[in-house]
Amino acid sequence: MSSHASTVDPKKAELWDTHHHSHDVISTRTLGYFLYLLSDGMLFATLFAAYGVLSYQHSYFGGPTPAEFVKPWYTFAQTIALFLSVLAYGFGMNALKHKNKSGLINGMLAAFVLGVVFLVLDIRDMSHLYSMGITLASSGGMSAFMVLTQVHATHIFFGLIWILVMIAQVMTKGFTEETVGRLLTLRMFWHLQAVIWVFVYIFVYLWGYIS
């Protein structure tokens, strides 16, 4: 058998693309962004692995362990804030379907405010720890704890900037192919951060609290 057991008749074959098909901009963009999020997910997977290695008793080296300072309800409030933010974003995107600009902007604003609540809670928590002398220099275990949670917080921070930018773009430009594409990718980003937060909450906060 050869790969050239020609199935196509060269005399009748279509040689050039006559239909002038063009590539779908939004789906190409979404795919690329999905690939980026894949690598972002790997980033967190690696951090979780590092955290797993550094969360044994001896990793805290006699210093503070999460069990001593984690307040599950406080962090649960953060969880609720982030989830509501994602929900608000979802309502906004629903408004997009009806080409409802103000609905979208309201949803985005709500998502922004709730995200800020999340971040403020996080910063308060961290400065509280700092005031107790617990920093990432305390021990290997604390380094892993701090870096994992704060890398996630940094993602949230940049997500918030992005939400602001998108509110401004929708206000000035309306629903163009570009802005809609970005709204879709931003939604993917925001969802992924919420999903990752669930893992952070369960494996770092709750599990750390219990053990």
Binding site: T46, A50, F61, L136, G140, V147
Partner: peptide
């Protein structure tokens, strides 16, 4: 899929060297 592992490894080295972490 693999470069993120490097990026994290480097970030953790940086945390050790810049912030005094103990990874």
């Amino acid at each position: 899929t693999s470069f993120p592992a490097l990026q994290i490894a480097l970030a953790l080295v940086a945390a050790d060297r810049y912030l005094g972490a103990h990874f």
